[in-house]
Design a binder for these strands. Structure first.
Lengths: 214, 214
DNA sequence: GCCGTTCCGATGCGAGCGCATCGGAACGTA
DNA sequence: TACGTTCCGATGCGCTCGCATCGGAACGGC
């Protein structure tokens, strides 16, 4: 066998270049030539890895989705000892992409989301990333509600003596997960366009989470 | 004076054409030629109205923002007799753009939001639309909280006897407005990419509003 | 009726795009 | 070492883009 290259890692390398360019100039600023230049490979190499530009974009989107999902998972195993409620807060903070180092990722994500609204292939890829994310959040919320129902309230300020079980029955974990996911995406968007500052968004998110249990 | 045309109405006509095209193929599918064809004018006419493409896009964005803001305002004056709480619900439903006839508007909006993340001019225009919207929601929430504090709870199911005043003090209207705005935008986005169905989003929104007062 | 002004449709230009093509470099195998 | 296979960098093609240009149509004032 003659020269052989690692296609997988090269595809990832190219996907990273796509991300950098999309972060700077939006998806419209992503051209095969610029991608090749940014990835330090030739255009021919890019064309070998991806038959068309769309194939490249779809792969990149999947790549980002995987990375974000992985980050949430990593964050969850990093803090397993604490309550499900705090774990939920950590996970939500993780996907809100508010920290400066993830701002670029958020911009790229937003660019793809907009494109997915008019491109079914991208939309499918995007949904494939959202589904497990929502699943994870649903589970976390259910666990947190169970924990709250089982023990007394740990951080509540008011003297409400009602059993948590009642509240757990009132909270629909799936609906709450959807709410949280949509809220986080909306906050991220508003930060990106400068309508909210990161601390303001953080404050909103924190308040929402706090109300979930209070 | 020789031939004179109504520039204002022509600009609006062109803006509508931009919206139609952006709805179908995203902002990338908006070219001067296609816009001219869709608006049934020549390319020269488009170039006369807008010196550059960007100027056209900025105007279009402002146009949409104005239209949405106007719709909210119209909805509010149409149902003034009811409580501030229901008015809030109506306004939120209005900007969530979930109804089929507004889905196109939502897609265009999303396309512009994504572009605004990498284009300061668009971002400024966008913020100019969000600011009064948030202002309106802040006011509505404050009024609703006041009304709740003044009278007894009207729809609460639990037998909680706490005075509403305490709760009103706990609710920060501005923060709630930010939350609601972000949630609505997130829900709209998730509907557009097919992650949620309109009824699901409607359900989430309704539950969130209900919890605001309960 | 001629003129001055405003408008616009058609056309051209340079640039940049995605994609196809191909000659040769690189490298394991015999 | 000679060969066969895999890879890739360079180049070209056809196309579309935003924008500039310009000749003439439309129309009120003199």
């Amino acid at each position: 066998m003659p020269k052989q290259v690692d296609h997988v890692s090269r595809r990832r390398l190219i996907a990273e270049a796509v991300c950098h360019l999309a972060d700077e100039h939006g998806l419209e600023g992503v051209t095969l030539r610029d991608v090749a230049a940014r990835a330090q490979v030739s255009m021919g190499a890019v064309q070998r890895c991806f038959r068309t530009k769309e194939e490249m974009l779809v792969f990149t989107l999947g790549h980002i989705g995987e990375r974000i999902g992985e980050r949430v998972r990593a964050r969850l195993v990093r803090s397993p000892a604490q309550s499900a409620g705090t774990a939920l807060g950590h996970a939500a903070t993780e996907i809100s992409l508010l920290r400066e180092e993830h701002r670029a990722e958020a911009r790229v994500w937003l660019a793809f989301v907009a494109q997915a609204a008019v491109n079914e292939t991208l939309a499918t890829t995007l949904r494939a990333s959202y589904a497990p994310l929502q699943e994870t959040f649903t589970r976390l919320i259910a666990e947190a509600a169970d924990a709250e129902a089982g023990s007394g309230s740990d951080a509540g300020a008011d003297g409400d003596g009602d059993a948590g079980a009642d509240r757990a029955a009132l909270v629909d974990p799936r609906r709450e997960a959807r709410t949280l996911l949509a809220l986080v995406d909306g906050l991220t968007t508003h930060v990106l366009i400068g309508h909210l500052t990161p601390p303001e968004a953080q404050d909103v998110l924190h308040a929402h989470l706090a109300r979930l249990w209070a």
